[in-house]
Amino acid sequence: MGRKNWLILLGAAIFIAAFPWLVAQFKAISHYVDVMVFAGIFSLVCLGLSLLMGYAGQISLAQAAFFGIGAYASGILTTKFGFNSLVAMAAGMTISGAIAWLVGVPSLRLKGHYLAMATMGFGVIVNIVLAEEVNWTGGPSGMADIPPFRIGTFTIDGEIAWYYAVWAVVFCALIFCFHILHSRVGRALRAIHEEERAAESMGVPTARYKVRIFVLSAVFAALAGSLYAHYVACVNPSSFNLMWSIRFMLMVMVGGMHSLWGAIVGTVLMTFVGNEWLQVFAELEILVYGAILLIVALFLPGGIVSLVPGRIFRRKAPEATLAEGAGS
């Protein structure tokens, strides 16, 4: 990753590190640390989705399902089998990745809309299984009393500890993603995105790279789900349905799908919107989400980061990013 990204990363890290201290100064917003823990967890999902949407040009509507697989793997393996948290987490990530591979290999051979529909179908199936397998998952009411995250004798306990743990994972994931983008795979992905046929004829195995990114996005989602399960201690199927998959997509879109920073900015912003500021709308929530999604897709396809002047967040000129999008 380039020097510019390291500088932004450093700035972001300082801000994130100071954030709990900053909000502690104001009583009314001191609970924002809790919101930021969720934002960090969702950021992990959105980083993977952003790679898939922005760089592989594919949409997955099963991210909430992979998130749920991670959460339930952690929940079931730690409560019913006494697994170590870390092992349970790794198991969830492996299962998710394997399923993504199974779904991805056939549907990524096909044109654009097939992965979207296949993942939508798969997401609904996961939700039905979560609701039906009452003995394992607790059915529609879910599972409770998932033990705290423990590594050896060390337990992540309390909001502040969770905050720093989650965001440390987010930064590691971010650096990992930047490295992917600057590797052979990343260059291939950009070539695919710009001119798939040309890339293919140059010998880039486009389908194989897309599958890899899809698997990676599923693994990230499962990792996030595992953290989520341990943090909230109880899970139920309604956090992992189609609406949540659409929300993750919305977060990526709002921030800007062609920038990993966009994914994080969008996620943090939309988490605050969803958990804090949109509460007044209550019933209207779904309508507001639809409207935001439509407006962003039609009028601001580059997301918020495309509004930032200059080339701070962008590597390329904007027309290369969504040239074929947005009805321009």
Binding site: I59, I286, G290, L294, A297, L298, G325, G327
Partner: peptide, 18 residues
């Protein structure tokens, strides 16, 4: 969105459905 990509059209029709 006449010239939009397949991906934007998926997102747009999804938004309409919501």
């Amino acid at each position: 969105a006449r010239n939009a990509s397949v991906m934007s059209l998926i997102i747009i029709t999804l938004a309409v459905s919501i």
